[in-house]
Nucleic acid binder design. Structure first.
Length: 887
DNA sequence: GGGGCACGGGG
DNA sequence: GTGTACGTGCCCC
């Protein structure tokens, strides 16, 4: 007998291969404590699934199945079917040899019953049964082996067991970016264009270098490698992957662009795409929008995908430039002007080639910095460790996280997991949402906000809500909870639900982590713990959503409905209890929070009173915990889900104030910065200084500056992209019309695929024809259309704010008229306005001549949208004047 | 207030 | 890969 080695490995990825086209071998990719890449083989695990027949005539079924598939192993076992509270059932366990054959077998046996767990990926089947988790640790016992199929050390395990360890092995990152040479002006496509530059940044030096640029044209400089041609460059890239051996390869929009491009180019050049840790070919699976990457043994991280989905940060745009500017305070190298021209200049004429190379390098460096300095992966490491998904999959959607976790918990408790529902329509299956009470619209002071901590999870937990406890027969005499929706769930003394157990585990675990965080001083540990509590929070909050998701394996409409119904009841009851027992009035409530006013006008006292109320409510409501959240010194509510307030929270005993905004957006893509900034400042004045006069004056000042042309063009410009050929746009859009103009003016410029920055200038044409480039406007000294900015950009969002404070729009505009008068008085040259200018200046409402329709702003077509009739301004001074929108 | 529709990021 | 996975914001009724 040979000596066996034992070692501890952290799991990064997992797949399987078929040995001699017969037997599966599971391969677990990971790293040893020392940070060495290793691939652990395990060859004693077979694919299986279950078949449930209501008739239970399994002997007969077995015979029939064996006739078609003689190699299958079958045995009848006892398992619990989780859809509805029911006793264990006899079920047929079907074990095969080739995981890839399972779908075929599954579809065949459907005629005998319902298959269970027949669509679980083999790697997850294995991991669930062995208790292994993505980013988790395992102890393996066995021997090193020699194989040509994997590029790292290979180890044949005789036994594998999970380990409970929190730390992470050092992870090697590599950032990657490619530059291409588009034949014509458009985004490059791999079927026509080539890769000309590849840049890299490394988390630990590769051959002493922190970054590297490969290119297929002669250039000199630091960390540059010149390659003969594209194929040679891609070969060099493969060498780098093999030699550096990154765990994580990141890039900005790498899933949507760089990786699919590289893979496709390699295919076309007849290269082997083994850029992972094995000889497996890399591929990108096309989905709705973009791709899902697969590189064996490594994780592909897309900073674009991560930031776009991060609920904690919101940007106007998610390009690398904006994100690195906001997150790192540094900008990308600006190639200035037309990208297509710059690339061609650099490549064919050698103009700005050095800058182009640096541009590529910086892109990779910025991505690396974003991932490492912002600790972007910490949360995903923890999501993997908690739910069990592999790291690559932790970057995907919520449902897989829950499925993997549920499969594991079901396995342990003797339940089988249903297959994913086939061809479900998401329509008609919508559940009634949470309750939002009608707000007392207006400006309030000293508003106390109370929150139910994790309301839905707490209800699942307290009322044992689960598919496994859901009573199919409501008349059965068993101890149960009944939801306001009418559904019944057996009590935990009858059977504890699986979902509630998971929720409970998540909640308890999060509380424990937060408790440790209070005293933990080690920086690295704190970081992991903080990521863990954040991961637990997202997991626990989305588990409820999974139960109400029509494509969920455990979808039961009644469950989601029961939860929200219970929630609505709770909020209504809470309001009643508060108003009946305390001197307080609830002015607003949404889902799991209530806002109330009392006669307290002091922070500490408001907290004390808020807590007293919360404790009382928590006592009355079983299993739920209402907590004092914050006090708003001032609070302005426009409508449901639209409010702003000066919120005070106690952090480490100290009151910290900040402006809270919900629904009142200050960052919107189609607003110029002037609007966002004015909006923010106005809210600041109203909320912090309670000085309506000052706020009004401030806005009037801005309006005056606008009318005077004092606002710089940069603060007025709006940016939108041209994404498709002009013909494909229907309707009139300013940036599209401008793009057409640009092309007409300069035949050499093509605009498709580029972003158009525009301002609206004065004139009597319809709005969309009056968009102009800021540069053009500056050069020619054109005037911007201040009226457009006042009425269409600035005022609509501000009006709503002032309206709830009882300031009418006309009070705001007054200043403009005064200003015009002032101009005249101060001797400014008076220009006789053309009739069209009067028209465009004085409108407040626009009405249709034919029907009774009227509008706040001119329609884009210049015709009545209801009946296509002619429009006129119904405002004072210009009644009856027909509108000329230039068409 | 709900539903349909378009668009993102990348060169 | 035992596949078939978006989210958001805008515009229009």
């Amino acid at each position: 007998m040979t000596n066996k080695d034992t070692m501890e490995v952290q799991i990064l990825d997992c797949d399987y291969i078929l040995l001699n086209n017969k037997k599966p071998v599971v391969r677990i990719f990971g790293k040893t404590k020392e940070g060495k890449s290793i691939c652990v083989f395990y060859n004693d695990f077979m694919p299986y699934f279950y078949l449930h027949s209501k008739e239970g005539n399994y002997d007969e079924i077995k015979k029939k199945i064996l006739k078609k598939y003689p190699d299958l192993q079958m045995e009848v076992v006892e398992k619990i079917i989780p859809m509805g509270y029911q006793p264990p059932s006899k079920i047929l366990k079907i074990t095969g040899t080739n995981p890839a054959k399972t779908p075929e077998i599954r579809d065949y046996v459907r005629m005998f019953g319902t298959p269970y767990e027949a669509d679980v990926l083999f790697k997850y089947r294995f991991m669930a049964d062995f208790g292994l988790k993505g980013m988790g640790w395992m102890e393996v016992e066995g021997n090193y082996i020699r194989t040509s199929t994997v590029k790292c050390a290979a180890f044949d395990a005789k036994s594998i067991k999970p380990l409970d360890k929190m730390e992470n092995v050092p992870i090697k990152y590599m950032a990657l970016d490619i530059e291409c040479l588009p034949e014509e002006e458009r985004i490059p496509t791999p079927d026509k264009d080539t890769i000309i530059v590849m840049s890299f940044a490394f988390s630990e030096p590769y051959k002493g270098k922190n970054d590297l640029v490969l290119l297929t044209k002669y250039a000199k400089g630091k960390n540059i490698v010149v390659c003969d041609d594209e194929k040679a460059m891609l070969e060099r890239f493969k060498e780098i992957m093999d030699e550096y051996d990154p765990d994580i390869v990141c890039g900005h929009n790498i899933n949507g662009f760089d990786l699919p491009f590289i893979v496709e180019r390699m295919t076309r050049l007849g290269m082997s795409k083994d850029i992972g840790r094995t000889d497996k070919q890399a591929y990108c699976r096309k989905i709705q929008n973009g791709f899902i990457p697969y590189v064996s043994g490594r994780t592909i991280v897309d900073t674009y995908a991560i930031y776009k989905r991060d609920p904690w940060v919101r940007f106007k745009r998610y390009d690398l430039s904006t994100i690195s500017d906001k997150m790192l305070g540094v900008s990308k190298i600006d190639l200035e002007g037309n990208m297509f021209e710059k690339i061609h200049d650099a490549w064919y004429r050698g103009i700005g080639l050095d800058k182009f190379v640096e541009y590529a390098r910086v892109d990779a460096v910025l991505v690396k910095r974003l991932v490492i300095e912002k600790r972007l992966m910490d949360k995903f490491f923890e999501i993997s460790k908690i739910s069990g998904v592999l790291l690559q999959d932790s970057l995907g959607g919520q449902s897989q996280r829950h499925e993997v976790k549920l499969l594991r918990e079901f396995f342990v408790r003797g339940y089988v997991m249903p297959c994913k529902p086939r061809n479900v329509s998401l329509e008609g299956q919508t559940l009634k949402g949470a309750i939002v009470l009608e707000p007392t619209v207006g400006f309030h002071e000293w508003v106390i906000c109370l929150d139910f901590t994790s309301m839905y999870p707490s209800m699942i937990n307290a009322l044992n809500i689960c598919t496994t406890t859901f009573m199919l027969d409501k008349s059965e005499k068993i101890d149960h909870y009944e939801s306001p929706y009418g559904s019944k769930f057996v009590k935990e003394n009858v059977r504890r639900g699986v979902i509630p157990s998971i929720v409970d585990e998540y909640l308890k675990s999060r509380a424990a982590v937060k408790k440790i965080l209070k005293t933990e001083t080690d920086k690295e540990k704190r970081r992991i713990l903080d990521a863990k509590q954040l991961a637990l929070k997202t997991l626990v909050n989305s588990l409820y959503g999974y139960t109400g998701y029509a494509r969920s394996r455990l979808f039961l409409m009644d469950i989601a409905n029961s939860i929200t119904a219970w929630g609505r009841d709770t909020i209504i009851k809470t309001r009643e209890l508060i108003e009946k027992n305390y001197k307080a009035k609830v002015i607003y409530a949404d889902t799991d929070s209530v806002f109330l006013i009392t006669d307290i006008k002091e922070l500490d006292e408001s907290r004390r009173f808020g807590s007293e109320i919360s404790d009382f409510i928590s006592d009355q409501l079983f299993g739920l915990d209402l907590k004092f959240e914050k006090t708003y010194k001032t609070f302005l509510i426009e409508a449901k889900k639209r409010y702003a307030g000066w919120a005070f929270e106690q952090i480490a005993g100290e009151w910290k104030g900040k402006i809270d905004m919900k629904g009142i957006e200050t960052v919107r893509r189609d607003w110029c910065t002037l609007v966002s900034e004015t909006m923010l400042e106005t809210l600041n004045i109203i909320l912090k200084e309670k000085d309506m006069k000052k706020a009004t004056k401030f806005v009037r000042g801005i309006i005056k500056d606008l009318a005077d042309g004092k606002i710089p063009l940069e603060r007025l410009s709006i940016t939108k992209g041209i994404t498709k050929p002009f013909e494909e746009y229907n309707g009139m859009q300013p940036h599209v019309e401008l793009a057409k103009k640009i092309v007409k003016r300069d035949k050499t410029r093509s605009v498709i695929g580029s972003r158009i920055e525009y301002v609206i200038i004065k004139g009597n044409q319809m709005l969309s024809k009056r968009a102009e480039e800021p540069k053009w406007v500056k050069q020619r000294g054109l005037q911007i259309d201040s009226d457009y900015y006042i009425h269409n950009q600035l005022l609509p969002p501000l009006e709503r704010v002032f309206e709830v404070c009882d300031i009418t729009p006309s009070e705001l505009i007054e200043g403009v008229r005064q200003q015009n008068l002032l101009d005249i008085l101060s001797g400014k040259k008076k220009k006789e306005p053309s009739p069209d200018e009067i028209v465009l200046k004085n409108y407040e409402t626009i009405a249709c001549k034919n029907c009774d329709w009227n509008f706040r702003r001119p329609s884009l077509t210049g015709k009545c949208p209801k009946c296509s009739g002619t429009l006129y301004f119904s405002d004072s001074g210009s009644i009856g004047k027909t509108v000329d929108f230039g068409n």
